[in-house]
């Protein structure tokens, strides 16, 4: 069992858990993920490592409520325990001095991009960050990302904060501008990563994305996380999760993410009825 040391509601739908997991805390690096399972009947779900504290031997994850497991996880309190917590999985982000790096993040992935921006900054890069949200109420961690960014741009779809529009607009402006951009790291919902990659393609700028297909084991055993990159089949959990965004077969990935839509809906509805009843 793994104990929850702290819980924070970052926004009404996005939550942070700091979990006591000494082995994972010792090894965690930016860009890696864990697989968790709440209880005996639970599903195994992957979550990116948002932070770690080697002294306290804890690992932090930030997640958004989307289905049954993430909603159940949102009910967990400090002091409670979850059944399984395994990691760190996947390859860490390639951290090197490339010059100017643009970190683009959408929604819950702000939490994922913070340790990457931090590592990029520490490696001596100039870091420009772009964070995008649907609306101001869903925004979080502006201060944290700003700490590791030489420049920070915020967008909201409805214009309630920062610039109105999606992240690809300022991204394109940066690419067209005078400063040389050496690398782009885009993490967030699949469509956002797809369009960020399409935006950078004509400029030939190295673009890294972190894919989130459905997973089960997270160790290369089941193959459900397979994606096509540059015409070859890769297992996201062991070969990724980061890949060259210009080479990912996005439409295939998006179709595969929809595999269990009906079942997920049914599972969530049944759980909600149970909650309401009991």
């Amino acid at each position: 069992m793994y104990q929850i040391v702290a819980k924070e509601d970052v926004t009404p739908q996005i939550h942070l858990l700091e979990i006591h997991a000494p082995d994972v805390a010792k090894k965690a690096q930016a860009g890696q993920f864990v697989v968790i399972r709440l209880d005996e009947k639970g599903e195994r779900i992957p979550l990116t490592i948002a932070d770690w504290n080697r002294q306290k031997r804890t690992v932090t994850v930030v997640f958004m409520e989307v289905g049954k497991t993430t909603r159940k996880l949102a009910n967990v309190k400090a002091g409670d325990s979850i059944a399984n917590f395994v990691g760190p999985l996947g390859r860490p982000t390639r951290i090197e001095k490339s010059g100017t790096v643009v970190c683009v993040a959408g929604g819950f992935a702000i939490a994922t991009i913070v340790p990457i921006a931090r590592a990029m900054k520490q490696a001596g890069n100039r870091v420009i960050s772009i964070m995008g949200f649907r609306t101001k109420a869903l925004m979080f961690w502006e201060d944290r990302l700003r700490r590791f960014s030489d420049q920070l741009i915020i967008t909201t779809d409805d214009g309630s904060y920062g610039r109105e529009g999606v992240v690809t607009v300022p991204l394109k402006e940066l690419l067209e501008g005078t400063q040389k951009i050496d690398r782009v790291i885009a993490i967030g919902p699949t469509v956002m990563m797809k369009f960020s990659s399409i935006t950078t393609l004509p400029f030939g700028v190295d673009t890294v994305v972190s894919l989130n297909p459905i997973m089960v084991d997270g160790t290369g055993m089941c193959g459900v996380c397979r994606v096509t990159v540059d015409g070859a089949v890769k297992f996201t959990c062991v070969d990724g999760p980061e890949f060259d965004g210009h080479k990912v077969d996005w439409d295939e990935l998006m179709a595969r993410q929809r595999t269990y839509l009906d079942e997920e809906k049914r599972s969530l509805e049944m759980w909600q009825q149970e909650q309401a009843g009991g």
């Binding site: 089941c222 193959g223 599972s267």
Partner: peptide, 25 residues
Amino acid sequence: SANEFLTRINLMKAYLFPEYDTPIK
């Protein structure tokens, strides 16, 4: 893959979905 199919069913008990959370189609 057979591994995914069997893992969902045996390890994750998808044959008891939705009592167990992992689905299979």
